[in-house]
Nucleic acid binder design. Sequence first.
DNA 1: AATATATGCTTAATCGTTTAACCATTTTGG
DNA 2: CCAAAATGGTTAAACGATTAAGCATATATT
Lengths: 337, 337
Amino acid sequence: MSKRVSLKDIANKVGVSTALVSYVLNGLEKEKRVGPEVVKRIREVAGDLNYKPNQIARSLRKGSTNTIGLIVADIANPFFGQLARIVEDEAGKHNYTVIIGSSDENCVKSASLIETFLDRQVDGFIIVPSEGCNQEIESLVNKEIPVVLVDRFLPELSTSYIVLDNFGATYEAVTHLVAKGYKNIALIAYKSSLVHMQERIRGYSEAMKDNHLEQAIQIKELSYNRVKEEIEEGVSKLFDGNNKPDAMIFSTNALSISGLYALKNHKIRVPDDMAIIGFDGNEAFDFFYSPLTFIEQPIEEMGKESVRVLLDQIKGSKENVQIELNHRLILRESTGG
Amino acid sequence: MSKRVSLKDIANKVGVSTALVSYVLNGLEKEKRVGPEVVKRIREVAGDLNYKPNQIARSLRKGSTNTIGLIVADIANPFFGQLARIVEDEAGKHNYTVIIGSSDENCVKSASLIETFLDRQVDGFIIVPSEGCNQEIESLVNKEIPVVLVDRFLPELSTSYIVLDNFGATYEAVTHLVAKGYKNIALIAYKSSLVHMQERIRGYSEAMKDNHLEQAIQIKELSYNRVKEEIEEGVSKLFDGNNKPDAMIFSTNALSISGLYALKNHKIRVPDDMAIIGFDGNEAFDFFYSPLTFIEQPIEEMGKESVRVLLDQIKGSKENVQIELNHRLILRESTGG
DNA sequence: AATATATGCTTAATCGTTTAACCATTTTGG
DNA sequence: CCAAAATGGTTAAACGATTAAGCATATATT
């Protein structure tokens, strides 16, 4: 492994101190009054030797690594994959590198990722927080390490965050279904105290009330780890119950997909037996025999904003920026178009 | 930002040199003959102060970062997302962190990612190489930096790699279709000189020949950047041509999805008008009205093996390990079950 | 008793950059 | 002509950990 070229190599070749070389290569030649001849020589030699600064050394000295840690629930999940991609590109534009970790909605894993990233001296975090993991995030806030929460937030903590207008999203979903004549509308949600989920539930409930359908409210809350089992049960029960729903709203992408499998297994006809609204885009929504109406999230904006806000904070901004982005309801056949 | 605890802080508190502290915390107390009392004190104080080594400093000194760079075509693509997830988990088990970049099948981006990662002194690379980017990879090989190629490889370069039995995959796909009575089988591929694609094409062609169907060979090669436009055209042409196919094999996941959209638009009935075989699993395959028979890749094994081989190389192994993993053909309705 | 060996710890260099502080000339202004 | 200012550079410490080499002192060996 032929050793990399260092500042010293250039300094030796040109016959000056490493300080001068550093100044020149950092564009401080004016400020530091380096002679024009020397500047030229240094540039030349640096080019010839194909010098590339060692970021590790630089990081150690400067105390910042130009790295941001991104923690999502699962990078294999396309929603987070897309988000990660945006974050990667956006961070790259500002010369930051991203290290990514998957928490599996698990506090122990989250904590371990945060620790690993801290050991590597990341300059800041973008985190999709999991339920009950307030402590982990709080410790970052206490250490005054820049953090931006994304997709969800923790109301007990004062941090920056970028989230969807979750309340509005399910509210509009219900409104749309009501307008299409559906009345027995059920909501499939996760059993979670996280605000984004509670807001989706609240948006649904409020909309039902505002449409005088409070007696028809039916919410199935499933456990994150047992979705597959519980959704089968849930769908069956919904159909055996005395007020069988004529429409269902799924409150996440994964739930939508699991729900579609269940509907398919039970041979339920959409939208005749039941109208369906999904969450997030997904190719599967398009190929379901009755393409799904769904709540679209502005993933790109979400990713870009979170990077922007984080970098602001890394640059010293102390204010917490809390942004709610708007959803879009995409109308298709599964709700009668 | 309350400063992190350093070795020096512990040393001061205990009243010894940083060297001793370092020895103890690295478990060298026997070898370096540190007194049992002192060992105890150091451990205590380190625990009390909640000391965590600064990996940046350690990396600078040791010349290795315990970081691996993963370059995929696009992390937002679920195939690569899943792969990344496996790599992340597997690397984590061995105390390595992963930084991920998306090349978009573009050599300039690939080169820039490689450079960025090198500047950050990654210990090795796992790369999904793009077409024509031999130089970029070769420079790594020349510098003797550990590299493992995955999903594809470059035959001109002697590197380790983990790939699918691409030839066998499409060969079996054809064989299956022939067994089901299909004869006019077309292949939808990328216009690419990369071996994995050429092997898929070769597997198809050989199987066609071996079944005495060489006159029915029809290969549509699409450009990576213009798939959407060309696939519409391609599907139309295939149907207007004089030997209209009765079956199609898609040679990547993305092509399969695009193909499904086209088939849907053209209202082609599967498998009556046309049988279909997709590549890679995908939820969309399940919800297509005629669930797709597809070639399944062992993503997990691919990810695990690439990490294993890379770490071996980082540890000093000089031999190139070249592994071909087996596909599985999952039979479903789109080919008549 | 004199030397050899163990024991327990410190010193200081090193990794590659950055950057404050300083030094030596030369030029300028009044 | 002399002090002040400008010019062009060097030195060395610092970031935090690792690690080879060295230095006392105590114990063992013959």
